[in-house]
């Protein structure tokens, strides 16, 4: 599903160059659950952003479903992204002005799904995430675990083939964290590919494969399954 070859990304400020990705090569197959680990600044978030089509590499190749996407313009990337990729963030990133229902509905609006169909699908996913009873609440009225469940619901509502999770349990206590990891595992079992960046060895153990990064390169791969 994802084939990355000799990917380079350098951040430049006036007099400092920071190499975030250094000729990284990396592959994820359909249906895999991959955890990316490494110390701060090793490039794992940059990798996630590029895979999520939120950022451009400087050079190298990135095939998404065998299509080269490196040269895509913003509009094409946004289009590909909204049909195929869901995101889960450490800080949930829900819109404060929208209710739970409306937050989850957002990707469907941008996909152009009809109102009735939207309602059905949002309710289904809220049900699945066991947060239906909170549908009319605003994010600030929910606990962290509930907020992250809403975020996961939003990530999966358009049935993406790939979920990118950036330290999804980072802001949660262990029991809420476990719940979210279980959700992701369930999704993976239903066929969704997951790439998760994490600092937590505990969380990483939910995955099939752990990639460890240092200075913009992968250093080891542990296959867990």
């Amino acid at each position: 599903m994802i084939r990355i070859k000799e990917l380079e990304k350098v951040y430049r400020t006036e007099d400092v160059e920071t190499v975030a990705l250094n000729k990284l090569t990396f592959e994820v197959k359909e249906g895999e659950f991959v955890a990316v680990m490494g110390p701060s600044g090793c490039g794992k978030s940059t990798l996630l952003n590029i895979v999520g089509l939120l950022d451009d590499p400087d050079s190298g190749s990135f095939l998404f479903n065998d299509i080269e996407v490196v040269d895509f313009n913003e509009r094409k990337r946004a289009d590909l992204r909204k049909r195929n990729i869901g995101f889960v963030f450490q800080s949930f990133n829900l819109i404060d002005e929208l209710t739970v229902f409306e937050n989850v509905e957002l990707p469907l609006i941008y996909l152009g799904v009809k109102t009735d169909e939207r309602k059905k699908r949002v309710e289904a996913v809220l049900d699945k995430m066991q947060i239906m009873h909170r549908r009319n609440h605003y994010p600030q009225q929910l606990s962290g675990g509930q907020q992250q469940r809403v975020a996961v619901a939003r990530a999966v509502v358009n049935n993406p083939r790939l979920i990118l999770a950036d330290e999804p349990t980072g802001n949660l206590d262990s029991s809420n964290g476990n719940e979210v990891m279980q959700l992701l595992t369930d999704l993976n079992e239903q066929g969704t590919t997951i790439i998760m960046v994490t600092h937590s060895e505990h969380d990483a153990r939910y995955s099939h494969r752990i990639i460890r990064m240092l200075d913009g390169q992968t250093v080891t791969e542990n296959i867990l399954v």
Binding site: A78, R83, N93, L106
Partner: peptide, 16 residues
């Protein structure tokens, strides 16, 4: 800004 970011991640085009 955050709202804009989330909307973009959720699939909003710039013109939207």
């Amino acid at each position: 800004a955050k709202e804009v970011g989330i909307r973009k991640v959720a699939g909003a085009f710039k013109n939207q």
